[in-house]
Nucleic acid binder design. Structure first.
Length: 402
RNA sequence: UCCGGGGUAGCUCAACUGGCAGAUGCGCUCGGCUGUUAACCGAGAGGUUGUGGGUUCGAGUCCCACCCCCGGAG
């Protein structure tokens, strides 16, 4: 399979150092990069309507093969207008392949697995078997047995009709040893080829395919993986897998990996999206990011804010916000900040009113969008370095981009 | 006024015949969350058992008096 501009084209319109501003043309419209991709894992950006998501400025969301194949099923979705029609979203969609879930089901969340602690217990017996052919697993919904392979993943993603499909991969655990990671990465490369073979025969004409670079934290494996993905002729390249035990290592692994990638294809960083990670990632040449952070934190009472010393977030539910008449973040253009007080959001959030969840989700998505849109402006204007420094020093996106 | 029921953690409630004052939920404080099984998960704090006496080795529990709340009667 060769990269096909008819499915997807990516044009870099400006560079500033390693940072790039680009334009991704998909079957469902253009996507300006760098961009953040909100998660619509189960066919919905939790709590929001499609118009609200696009109204914020988002041009692409991410859906998940794993969840959607279990419920309501990809064939049903195909019969109801594909994922676009089914969820009422007429912009671009990228679908994850389900590979990551093999990892998360068996080992719990990324943070829990990396830190070796017991967080939410992994699904007992969730993964039945991981073999050369694919992965047998048990549905978290009804316990029924299912099988996911490169071919099946591509088949499901074809039925969903996403604009960008991700190849089926295995996300090796942080604590896996070198040999396991090496064998897993090689198998992921064989899976990559099987995905492309399947897609080349029966894949939707308008669907692009992104490869995924694995290799854990090992530079030589990352190099092999980057070369394998680049040689396969995919439409874009995603960086996945274990990125390390902390931000420092994660940034090192990502930067090293980016340096191994060809310049032309779009580069997507999977699963990363805290505010500082976005500007740092953009600075080293990442074009797009998807992440649960803005939406999940919003549901958990956290507001994104220009607070480097507090990991760019604060807990709205804490009592000190109970009587704050000002907005969540001064100057923020989001509806939650323009129209409501922090005290109101604090109250709603504690009262478990759905509106509180919605306001925080909207705020966090606007904040992330402002951050990335500001970065793009700065790149085009040739002053991204100053923008990044201002953000990291605690400037709000709308201040840093002035 | 009389009869009955009841006062235990901020709230709602346990504690068999007297034997280390507890739980669940909520609330509270703190921590966590990065290709979403997550409007979630985890930890912690919190007490003169209404008041004052008495019996007993030992009282939330039994006895006496008082205070307060609820229901019923008048």
């Amino acid at each position: 399979m060769r990269h096909d501009p008819a499915r997807l084209s990516f044009e870099i319109v400006a560079r500033d150092g390693d940072a790039r501003a680009g334009l991704l043309r998909t079957s469902h419209g253009p996507v300006e990069t760098p961009c953040f991709v909100p998660l619509a894992t189960r066919g919905s950006v939790k709590g929001l309507l499609p118009d609200e998501v696009s109204g914020i400025g988002y041009e692409i969301v991410l859906g998940n093969t794993y969840h959607l194949m279990l419920a309501p099923g990809s064939e049903r979705i195909a019969g109801l207008g594909g994922l676009h029609g089914f969820m009422g979203w007429d912009r671009a969609i990228i679908t994850d392949s389900g590979g990551f879930q093999v990892f998360s089901l068996a080992f719990g969340s990324v943070a829990d697995e990396v830190k070796g602690r017991r967080g939410r217990p992994p699904l007992e017996g969730g993964v039945l078997d991981v073999g050369e052919d694919g992965v047998a697993f048990r549905s978290y919904i009804d316990g029924s047995e299912h099988f996911l392979s490169p071919e099946r993943s591509m088949e499901v993603q074809a039925a969903l009709g996403s604009d960008i499909a991700l190849v089926f991969d295995e996300c090796t655990p942080f604590r896996a040893d070198y040999d396991y990671t090496a064998r897993s990465t090689e198998r992921t490369h064989r899976w990559l080829q099987r995905c492309l073979d399947w897609h080349g025969v029966g894949g939707p004409a308008g669907q692009a395919v992104f490869g995924i670079v694995q290799g854990g934290t090992h530079e030589d494996l990352r190099r092999q993986s980057a070369a394998a993905v680049a040689a396969a002729g995919v439409d874009g390249i995603a960086i996945g897998g274990t990125l390390g035990k902390d931000k420092e290592q994660m940034r090192g692994v990502v930067a090293t990996t980016v340096g191994m990638l060809p310049a032309d294809p779009a580069r997507h960083l999977l699963g990363i999206g805290e505010p500082d990670d976005l500007v740092e990632g953009i600075g080293i040449g990442i074009d797009s990011f998807d992440c649960a952070v803005p939406t999940r934190l919003g549901r958990h009472g956290m507001a994104l804010a220009p607070l480097p010393e507090r990991r760019f977030r604060y807990d709205v539910r804490k009592r000190r916000n109970a009587e704050e008449p000002g907005p969540l973040v001064p100057g923020c253009p989001c509806p939650a900040c323009v129209r409501f007080s922090r005290a109101y959001v604090h109250y709603l959030s504690r009262a478990e009113e759905l509106t509180g969840v919605r306001l925080l989700t909207i705020h966090n998505l606007v904040y992330s969008r402002e951050l990335v849109a500001g970065a793009r402006e700065a790149i085009v204007a040739g002053r991204f370095g100053g923008y990044r420094d201002a953000i990291m020093a605690g400037a709000a996106p709308w201040e840093a981009s002035v």
